[in-house]
């Protein structure tokens, strides 16, 4: 009897796990393969949905921060990337999921650093959780079907003068050329995203 109940419980939990992973687009390693549409407000209160950018050739989501020195080391490079690739019909969007960084701080930070791309406030780190984003800066590049074509760093050096491999730019150029991204997953050190329950 007890085994039957245990087995029943196991099947139920197993089914829930599988359903959850299927619905959220995760595999069991926790990596996102395909994203879902989401809506967040920018620091001016304007709502942006992923679907607003569906007609772009690619969507670059950058999890960034106002206080993280690593993320800040990339501010000017993010501006350059936006300037270069927005002209080529690639959408560039910043997302701030840090619980302690307010919309006002994000606005000041964006203005100070000349960000022309929207920076969205991810209240309660909902979108960071969906993507499995762990640190800043962390990049996800999606196609119009929200499939993740690239995930990882902007380039291979936090010190701009020592950059040898511009991984994000290379991925975007490959996408624009209709080629598969040759290095779709890269890693770098970064500041842990401060989550509401973290």
């Amino acid at each position: 009897m007890i085994f039957k109940r245990l087995a029943g419980l196991s099947i139920f939990i197993f089914a829930v796990l599988i359903s959850w992973n299927y619905l959220s687009g995760n595999d069991f390693s926790g990596k996102v393969k395909k994203a879902e549409n989401f809506s967040l407000k920018d620091f001016n209160g304007k709502v942006h949905s992923l679907s607003d950018y569906k007609n772009s050739k690619a969507i670059v989501l950058m999890f960034i921060a106002t206080e993280c020195p690593v993320s800040n080391a990339y501010n000017s490079r993010m501006v350059k990337l936006y300037n270069e690739f927005s002209k080529k019909d690639i959408a560039v969007i910043g997302i701030n999921s840090n619980k302690q960084e307010s919309a006002d701080e994000i606005k000041d930070h964006s203005n100070k650093n000349g960000f022309k791309f929207p920076v969205l406030k991810d209240i309660n780190n909902v979108v960071a959780d969906k993507f499995g984003a762990g640190h800043t800066p962390e990049i996800f590049v999606l196609n119009s079907n929200y499939e993740i074509l690239y995930h990882g760093r902007i380039d291979d050096s936090r010190d701009e003068s020592e950059v040898e491999s511009k991984d994000l730019a290379a991925a975007l150029n490959e996408i624009l050329s209709g080629k598969p991204v040759s290095n779709p997953e890269t890693k770098a050190f970064g500041c842990t995203i401060k989550r509401v329950n973290g």
Binding site: S29, G134, H135, K187, F189, G190, T192
Partner: peptide
């Protein structure tokens, strides 16, 4: 990668 393949580099 050496320290843990599941690690994303957050510290």
């Amino acid at each position: 990668e050496l320290l843990n393949k599941e690690w994303d580099g957050s510290i």
